[in-house]
């Protein structure tokens, strides 16, 4: 619990920067609105105001500063507006409603989890192959690395269109993209984990004339567990990003990605920002769950010394 204070300090600093940044970011919009409402604005016309920076305009119109925090369609929403939107769409809506972020969150989360399971399984199997088969050792890793250099934003629409061609729609194409992003950290971590036993450990098993599968189940696999959890934590957040990205280019009607796009297209930044924060909180929660599972597993295995 000693990490609470440093974390709160950082959160506080970010909030402070955010709150200050709202003023210049929104000042032009505020000034335009104030002029329409008949308030005194300097300079008086939008054309003249274009010559000012957001900061300059703020100094010229200190009276308008409070108004920058309550625009309907702000360029940068203030923290309390985002919080309000989130409260509204998470707590006050029926979870089955299309207006509910819980509904959209579940859509994204379900394909995230399916994709994560596919990606993790694939990653573990590939890692086992790499460690036990020389041909796979030489060939798989370069392809795995190459696969991650392709921008997922370019690949996602192709996967979705191609799978749609075969009549596969909805959750599965998104899960495939999640799997595509999450298998990689699992392969890398798992290969390292399976190879973590040193030469002496391998020699010891040779003195017992142990088979390769005994070596795998009794030594390599348990030794890889700490590495596996590190990979899980990276993999699950990558899977969430994958699911969101998969929702962006395809006109998906539900999910965090769809909400972000809707907010953007209809000029309603509050919706985008609320979805963004909800996604970040979801990712943090998923990572926290894996951290707790890691602690529990390692303690059970007797490896969480002191």
């Amino acid at each position: 619990m000693k990490s609470v204070l440093p974390i709160l300090t950082i959160v506080g600093a970010i909030l402070l920067i955010w709150v200050v940044a709202v003023i210049p970011m929104n000042m032009h919009l505020t000034a335009d609105q104030a002029q329409r409402d008949g308030l005194v604005v300097t300079p008086a016309t939008p054309a003249e105001r274009q010559g000012y920076s957001g900061l300059g305009l703020s100094f010229a119109n200190p009276d308008l500063i409070p108004l920058t925090y309550n625009l309907d369609r702000p360029r940068l929403p203030s923290p309390h507006q985002v919080a309000g939107e989130m409260w509204d769409t998470i707590a006050l809506r029926n979870v089955t409603s299309r207006q509910s972020l819980v509904y959209h969150g579940w859509v994204t989360l379900s394909s995230t989890l399916v994709g994560f399971v596919i990606g993790t399984t694939l990653g573990i199997l590939l890692a086992i192959g790499i460690v036990h088969n020389r041909a796979m050792d030489m060939s798989v890793m370069p392809w795995a690395i190459a696969s991650q250099t392709i921008p997922i934003l370019a690949l996602a629409p192709m996967i979705i269109v191609m799978m749609g061609q075969f009549g596969i729609q909805g959750l599965l194409p998104k899960a495939v993209i999640s799997a595509y992003l999450s298998f990689f950290p699992v392969v890398v971590g798992m290969v390292k984990g399976l190879r973590s036993p040193d030469a002496m450990q391998m020699d010891l098993l040779r003195t017992y004339y142990a088979s390769a599968s005994q070596g795998f189940w009794k030594l390599r696999l348990p030794a890889s567990v700490p590495y596996l959890f590190a990979s899980f934590k990276i993999g699950i957040s990558a899977a969430l990003v994958g699911a969101i990205v998969a929702e962006l280019p395809t006109g998906a009607r539900a999910g965090f990605g769809a909400r972000m796009l809707v907010g953007d297209q209809y000029g309603n930044p509050l919706v985008t920002w609320a979805a963004l924060f909800a996604a970040a909180i979801t990712a943090a929660a998923l990572v926290a769950i894996f951290t707790a599972m890691e602690r529990l597993t390692l303690r059970r295995m007797g490896m969480a010394a002191a």
Binding site: M200, Q201, L204, T207, A223, V225, M301, G302
Partner: peptide, 14 residues
């Protein structure tokens, strides 16, 4: 034969 190495090399999870 039984072989004893310089390090005990016990499995930490056992």
């Amino acid at each position: 034969y039984g072989y004893v190495f310089q390090a005990a090399g016990l499995y930490p999870w056992r």
